[in-house]
Amino acid sequence: MTITDAPALEMRGLTKTYGSGPTAVAALQGVDVAFAPGTFTAVMGPSGSGKSTFLACAAGLDRPTGGQVLVEGVDFTAWDEVRRTTLRRERIGFVFQDFSLVPYLTAAQNVELPLRLAGRRADARRVASLLAQVGLADRAGHLPSALSGGQQQRVAVARALVTEPGVVLADEPTGALDTTTARSVLRLLRATVDTLGQTVVMVTHDPVAAAYADAVLFLVDGRLEGRLDAPTPEAVAAWTARLEDLVPAVTR
């Protein structure tokens, strides 16, 4: 891990507006937040609250309208597309709701892909040990179509960890999984924080999933409206219910 005092991920005055003129939609309206290294944070909010935009801007998948995003103290907001991609695949791990595995690569080849794309040598032992960590040591040579949903998502988690990124971002990582499988993926994310010292930021709408995190941030109408430390599913659910009352009826 990089030895630095900087937060793993930081956002300063982040805004994102889609469209322009009277039809413009403000998805993010000034988000200031920092995620310390080695923490697991869940971001929650009603649909349309800007969760997906938040994560896309954090990952460099989308360009913010205003403000800054810093990964390990590096502000890449103004970089061009190729440089942002290069930083993204080296310093940011991403876990997608739909797994996003490459269909014609085996589990092991999917895991090592970010290294290959970066022109780095793919260390076979490292890939094998990551697959072992996610419990798929015996599935290394399987194509995604031969794996279950939970197995595919665990391959995706291993892929997100392979470059030893500064931060792992997860977008509804359990959204496409059943309850039992979802739990195993959440435990896996928790373990990467506890044993590897990774930083994980996860967007979810599921209070049970959010309770695996150290803290929960609530996003409403593009603004951070609250923070809950040491969350339990019940506390998260209560918060969520309260926040939904805050949202004006017309926008729901």
Partner: peptide
Amino acid sequence: ELHRLWLVGATRPQ
């Protein structure tokens, strides 16, 4: 599928 490659870190030239 090509968009997915971009998501996992392939540059467009790649």
